[in-house]
């Protein structure tokens, strides 16, 4: 299971000649500059929330002086913000559970059974990877409307599950293929049915892949913009990305408050990512190697 090992494997031994040719201060310097460029805008957003509007107008690139906690306090005290956090949570968790459950079942079939049309089925899902939601959004909107799911989170969740399946299946199939046949034989000798094998052996053994795909699905749902933009027009059903944008246009003169709202809305995805970074990187490795 190279997929599991990749992120935690001790780093390969470097050749001694490398270090002499490349002074390591230069490496650190370039890494530092790159990190600074990556984080600069994020820090701008977070610090901007601690300033007030006159500070931002007078010195657009300055630091908070004095520090102002009112913006964050006001956002945290507003029921709109928490309602949107709740909506995003519901959509994210439901999407994650749906993608992982359906994806695991389909991957199990694709990985462990030989049947006519198996290649075609895999290609069908893999093809979905090539076509993100943008292409299908107009008819998808009509479809969801005709199903009576406009302005409901279900209208966002179901398409998100469908569009999350390709990545999930492509990551999970190698995991399930890697389970040795001997385990399945042993299980069947012990009188376990195929379904029993699925629940008792496959689910626990593929847990790392399941976590990876689950996190990817959750973060994708948490950040999803286009689909909610089409489906959710009632403020009460807004997820955070829509809420952030509505807030930004509603309070366009109150830059500091917009920045506070924006930085608070990115915290959950960042926490999730930090906790599971190794798994995500590991899962991507598996996907690349196929």
């Amino acid at each position: 299971m190279a997929v599991l090992e990749a992120p935690t494997r001790p780093h390969k031994k470097r050749l001694s000649s490398d270090r002499q040719e490349w002074g390591s201060p230069a490496t650190y310097f370039i890494a530092f500059v790159f990190i600074a460029l990556c984080l600069g805008p994020v820090i701008y957003i977070i610090l901007g929330g601690f300033r007030d509007n006159s500070q931002i107008t007078n010195s657009p690139a300055g630091f908070p002086n004095p520090w102002n906690f009112d913006n964050y306090a006001e956002v945290l005290a507003s029921s709109t913000f928490w309602q949107q956090v709740g909506n995003s949570m519901i959509a994210g968790l439901a999407t994650t559970i749906g993608v992982v459950t359906l994806g695991l079942m389909a991957s199990f079939i694709l990985a462990r059974y030989r049947f006519a049309g198996r290649g075609a089925m895999y290609s069908l899902f893999a093809a979905g990877l090539m076509f993100p939601m943008t292409v299908a959004i107009t008819p998808l909107y009509i479809l969801v409307r005709d199903l009576g799911l406009m302005n409901s989170l279900a209208g966002v969740i179901l398409p998100q599950i469908a569009f999350g399946l390709p990545v999930t299946i492509i990551i999970l199939v190698p995991f399930l293929k890697a389970i040795p046949d001997e385990i399945e034989e042993a299980a069947s000798i012990d009188g376990t049915s195929r379904l029993g094998f699925f629940f008792r052996m496959v689910v626990p053994l593929s847990l790392p892949g399941v976590v990876t795909t689950g996190i990817l699905a959750f973060v994708a749902s948490w950040n999803s913009y286009l689909l909610p933009l089409f489906i959710l027009s009632d403020q009460a059903t807004y997820t955070l990305p829509l809420g952030v944008q509505a807030f930004a246009s509603q309070y366009s003169v109150d830059t500091a408050k917009v920045l506070a709202f924006t930085s608070l809305s990115m915290i959950p995805a960042l926490i999730f990512f930090t906790l599971f970074e190794r798994r995500i990187v590991g899962g991507l490795t598996g996907a690349v190697k196929g």
Partner: peptide, 16 residues
């Protein structure tokens, strides 16, 4: 740290 911009939503990146 280098993965942070990728994790942040397009909306936040756009507004920021």
């Amino acid at each position: 740290l280098i993965f942070v911009p990728y994790i942040i939503s397009e909306v936040i990146v756009g507004i920021g």
